[in-house]
Simulated assay, not measured.
Amino acid sequence: MKLHLTEIFYSLQGEAARVGLPTVFIRLSGCPLRCTWCDTPYSFSGGEPWTIDEILAEIARYPTRQVCVTGGEPLAQKACLPLLQALCEAGHEVCLETSGALDIRNVDARVSRIMDLKAPASGESERNLWANLEFLTPRDELKIIIANRSDYDWACQKLQEHQLAARCPVLFSPAQSSQEARQLAEWILADGLPVRFQLQLHKLLWGNMQGK
């Protein structure tokens, strides 16, 4: 059983509850979505075939138990599920970054799922699989990238409509290319939203450098 990998690299976690922790990132290749603000289009295709055992051996070289499986869209590869299970069995603290467009119900319960909801400016909001919300637990997180005021208003509506903050922590992030971060922070404060404002730490440190 092999997976197509774009890269494996060691860096600081830039997002969500584990922000700042040294982490090994496993970036799988392929994604069925084409979000307008995507910052990893190089992962859409290609990649090299790796077995799960080869991946486990590679990440064992790094001095951390924190592992993040990302993409692309990791769940687009069927072997992602056994990879996640194998990582947990090997004693790693595992999180999965997923678009929210594919079914998350069979992800190993030991994995923390960082799931997107795609706002309209992403161009992919019709791909949101709303049934996924029922499978979220307090150990998971929801991320909404905000590109403009319309996205923010949409996110506020969904926050209330689906009682998102009662399911798991909710993260609002500004789209780097279009939404001014301070303005988003001020909107959140003005409305007293039960969400976490989030900037991408790795981009503050290294910009858009691949492998960081």
Rank of each mutant, 00 (worst) to 15 (best):
L129R: 13
K212P: 01
D116V: 11
V111R: 10
R113H: 00
P22T: 03
Q160K: 15
C156T: 14
S122A: 11
E186L: 15
I104S: 12
F197M: 09
I188V: 15
K2W: 10
K212L: 05
T6Q: 10
W154G: 11
T51I: 05
L83C: 10
Q85K: 15
R61L: 15
G30N: 11
G123R: 10
Q198W: 03
A17L: 03
A166G: 06
R127H: 08
S122P: 05
S112P: 01
W130N: 02
E141G: 08
L96Y: 07
F135M: 10
I52G: 06
L171D: 03
Q77E: 03
I59G: 06
G14D: 03
Y10A: 08
E58G: 01
Q163Y: 00
G47E: 02
P169L: 04
D140K: 09
S43Q: 08
P82L: 09
P49E: 11
Q77L: 06
T40D: 08
D140S: 07
L83V: 08
F44H: 14
S99C: 13
R105L: 06
R149A: 15
G211F: 01
P22G: 11
L83Q: 07
P32F: 12
A166F: 12
T64L: 06
R110V: 08
E180D: 15
L96D: 06
P49Q: 05
P120F: 07
L201R: 03
C35W: 00
S112V: 03
H92T: 10
A131R: 15
G71H: 05
V19N: 00
Q66S: 15
P41V: 04
T137I: 02
Q160W: 13
Q77F: 12
V111C: 09
R110S: 09
F172T: 03
K143L: 09
L83D: 07
M209C: 13
E7M: 00
A101Y: 09
G20D: 02
I145D: 01
E161C: 02
A147F: 04
Y10T: 04
G14K: 03
P82I: 11
Q210T: 05
G71Y: 00
I145C: 13
R182A: 15
L28C: 11
R18G: 01
A166V: 10
T6Y: 02
R139Y: 05
P74T: 04
N106W: 02
W154Y: 13
N106D: 08
S177P: 01
I114N: 11
F9P: 00
I114Q: 06
L129N: 09
C95H: 07
I114W: 14
L184C: 12
F25G: 00
